[in-house]
Amino acid sequence: MKYAYYPGCSLEKTQRGYDESVREVFKALNQELIEIDDWNCCGATVYMSVKETVSLAVSSRNLALAQNMGYDIVAPCSSCFTVLSKTNRILNQIPEMHHDVNEALSEAGLNYSGNTKVRHPLDILMNDVGIETIQKKMKKNLGGLKIAPYYGCQIVRPDKTFDDHENPVLLDKMFKKCGAEVVYFPMKVRCCGGMLMTTFEETALKLNKELLACAEAHGADVIVTTCPLCHFNLEAYQNKINNIYNTNFNVPILYFTQLLGIVLGLPEKNIGLDSVFVPVGKKISSLIMA
């Protein structure tokens, strides 16, 4: 299958590990990602809280570009995924807004029907490609590696798009079939604070401390993420959390596509494993070497 790929701003550079691993995993599973030419920032949750029509017009430009390509859009970043899905929902439910957005888009010679499907890589890998195909291509068994599957907020909320709100299971299923032991992780959909790390740092540090403590208490070797913001907060602020709370966390954080890349036997530098801040630890290193 072919998809219109929308990496989003954070995957361009700061979260290149996610971008690289999504591209490589899709290639290994014979799925073609065609990057949307000249896409723009979706506006994230920030724009939505300032100006609604403008934020919808900004995100709609990407949906219109994907529509012209004729493929579903793939957005790995949770924030992009939610903003693009939400744009569709509003445009389809409030005709006046749809009309206004198209009026703005026409300034650039674009028109958007409201019909571009917004998909997340996890959805495509589990529901289109299927776990059987992944298992056929499996080169390495995770051999009981203990993972904490962290879904975060915005791929399962606000809409029930492809997994459950309260207890999503696709990551669990995926990695169990790849030989991992999925630890009990009741905070799998608890918020990391997102941008609060910049605006209300103390609050966000506390939320992330709780997530790390929960994963550690249940013996996780690694937290597997699906969102650049969760990933960055858990990874880049781990030192700071240790300093402030007098803890000793040393939990590797990997994108689910990076761990899947290891399972598929992809070279470590192709899936951005050279960009991690917390060393992956013995178990994962030996898997990579194997």
Binding site: D38, W39, N40, K51, E52, T53, V54, L56, A57, V58, R61, D100, V101, E103, A104, L105, E107, A108, G109, L110
Partner: peptide, 19 residues
């Protein structure tokens, strides 16, 4: 900058007027 920066600016300007 993205290539269509001008076009995006026009979209934003128009949407602001509508807002």
């Amino acid at each position: 900058k993205i290539k269509a920066h001008e076009a995006l600016s026009r979209i934003i300007k128009k949407a602001n007027e509508i807002e």
